[in-house]
């Protein structure tokens, strides 16, 4: 297992290098001259040329790429025009917010979706199955921002149970940042009130974000469970007296989960980059909202930073999935 893990981690390096090349290339290929943009509309040719030299943009591409990469490693991710702060500083604030949202949303999707898929398959073509299939189809079909709006209407406007948006009340003092996850930080600070507040803010956006992975995981789990239940080892287990419950929740579940795991990894990465809509609807101060604002103002450095960090996290999550796959499926370790 250790050798398998090391091999997987080593494979990460070329992916990250490739990612940095792509991000760098896109920034150079995009229309619009960043120097002109930075110098302002009234700048003369000489001013632009001197700024270009100052920024190092007159040097060969390879040199530029090298200084970009070494800058990344040293924590220099450029400056945001909009926030007037280093991108790295911005990401340190916004990224944990998005991660918290995505982690909780995926947590909900996995915790509900996998058992729902198992039960759905166990009751194939009976009412629990029909119910879960109809709900899953609905959750997949409804657009996330629409679900978000409906939830806001019901839970925030009518029932007034949950706040309309945001991550924490502006008037309250958040717990000291340790992990950047407000819920965790509140727990670390032993502040029950803050935890409850953070949770209430988190509930709706996390739920809205979780619905489509939840539905997909349910359907994947159902299909792979049905497939696993036709396997010979299930007949052998039945022939030797094991109970249906043990066969389903132990022997079939583990086999079915390994197929579903791939989807979970993909969805995780997809959610990281796809929180834009939900963050906009719920005014959640995360990377998605940051990126949207950066796009609107042609603010390149934050965009490159967000792309890079989302790409890196995507590959990292898939590494975790690969490792989990190795845990579940012993054969994969030797492949």
């Amino acid at each position: 297992m250790l050798r398998y893990a090391i091999r997987r981690i080593l494979l990460l390096a070329p992916v990250l290098v490739g990612l940095s090349i792509i991000v760098f290339a896109i920034a150079r290929l995009l229309p619009g001259d960043p120097v002109q943009l930075a110098a302002g509309p009234q700048a003369t040719k000489e001013e632009i040329a001197s700024l270009s030299r100052e920024l190092g943009l007159d040097r060969p591409l390879l040199t530029q790429y090298w200084s970009y990469v070494t800058g990344l490693v040293a924590g220099d991710w450029g400056q945001s025009i909009l926030t007037r702060r280093p991108v790295w500083e911005d990401l340190r604030i916004y990224l944990p917010a998005t991660l918290e949202l995505v982690v909780v949303a995926m947590g909900i999707a996995i915790a509900v979706g996998m058992p729902a898929g198992l039960v759905s398959a166990a009751y194939a073509n009976r009412w629990p199955d029909y119910l879960s299939r109809v709900l899953a189809l609905g959750a997949i079909s409804a657009p996330r921002f629409f679900l978000g709006l409906v939830m806001q209407l019901v839970f925030a406007m009518w029932l007034a149970w949950l706040p309309l948006g945001g991550r924490f009340p502006i008037v309250d003092i958040p717990p000291p940042a340790v992990t950047g996850f407000l819920t965790l930080d509140a727990l670390i600070a032993r502040d029950g009130g803050a935890f409850w507040l953070a949770l209430k803010h988190l509930a709706m956006p996390a739920l809205a974000l979780s619905l489509s992975p939840l539905a997909t995981i349910t359907r994947m789990m159902r299909a792979s469970t049905l497939e696993a239940m036709t396997q010979d080892y299930v007949l052998t287990a039945r022939a030797l007296g094991l109970s249906r419950r043990l066969i389903l929740f132990k022997y079939v579940a583990k086999n079915a989960a390994s197929a579903t795991l791939t989807v979970i990894g993909l969805y995780f990465g997809w959610l990281l980059a796809g929180t834009v809509l939900v963050e906009t609807v719920f005014d959640w101060p995360g990377v998605g909202l940051y990126a949207t604002k950066a796009i609107a103002t042609q603010d390149f450095m934050p965009l490159m930073g967000v792309t890079l960090i989302c790409g890196a996290l995507f590959t990292l999550v898939n590494l975790v999935v690969d490792l989990a796959y190795g845990l579940i499926n012993p054969k994969a370790r030797y492949a």
């Binding site: 080892y233 022939a239 030797l240 007296g241 022997y251 086999n255 579940i328």
Partner: peptide, 24 residues
């Protein structure tokens, strides 16, 4: 029947590669 299966009656089948659960 479950009281008989595994205790009084054992069964083996044709293909030993598919009758053992690969994940355990």
């Amino acid at each position: 029947m479950r009281k008989l299966r595994g205790r009084r009656i054992g069964m083996i089948f044709q293909d030993p590669t598919t009758n053992l659960n690969p994940a355990f």
